[in-house]
């Protein structure tokens, strides 16, 4: 089971965290919050956003219909959306069907603990309230967050 990358998007449509593992055999390879991934982040967010709004339009019934995963011939994208507008995205291979529990754990135990509960870190990563164009935003640079994320996901990177 190999994980290729992990992304977090906030409700302003910005990517506030990304981690990519370029060599699936080496769990400390790859980049964290790299600038090269900005284009990819935008494409990924756009794709998830449009597919999500499309499926919500087509769905029936009172229950909310959230998008869970998107599979292509080469990889699978798993999405977990929270009610606060955060989206946790994981790109993996095909060995495991559902990563919802993993993403839920990351949200509830890692993000909430180190970012939301941390009074010194921003809860809204945009520079100002009216930020919408993807220009002024910060990324999560919280060391504890990154460390615990690594220790949680590293065992899963190995093929």
């Amino acid at each position: 089971m190999a994980i290729y990358s992990f992304w977090i998007f906030d409700r302003h449509c910005n990517c506030i965290f990304d981690r990519e593992w370029t060599l699936s055999s080496n769990s400390s390879s790859g980049t964290v919050n790299s600038k090269q991934n900005e284009e990819t982040a935008k494409l990924l967010y756009g794709m998830v956003f449009s597919l999500r709004s499309m499926t919500q339009k087509v769905s029936s019934g009172p229950l909310k219909n959230e998008i869970k995963s998107i599979a292509t011939g080469k990889y699978r994208i798993h999405v977990y959306c929270t009610a606060s507008g955060l989206q946790f995205v994981l790109i993996t291979d095909f060995k495991q069907q559902s990563y919802t529990e993993v993403l839920q754990y990351i949200y509830s135990h890692i993000y909430v603990k180190y970012v939301a509960h941390n009074l010194f870190s921003a809860y809204d990563f945009a520079d100002n309230k009216n930020e919408t164009r993807g220009q002024g935003f910060r990324k999560i640079a919280n060391r504890n967050f990154v460390q615990s994320l690594e220790s949680f996901l590293s065992p899963m990177i190995v093929q």
């Binding site: 290729y4 990358s5 292509t72």
Partner: peptide, 27 residues
């Protein structure tokens, strides 16, 4: 809505191939 659905699928279909992670490209 259905027309929009179809064209959304068509365009995201194309985007998906550009998002192939580097790990697979190197593999």
């Amino acid at each position: 809505d259905l027309l929009i659905l179809a064209s959304t699928l068509h365009s995201t279909f194309a985007i998906a191939s550009q998002l192939t992670p580097k790990a697979i490209q190197l593999q």
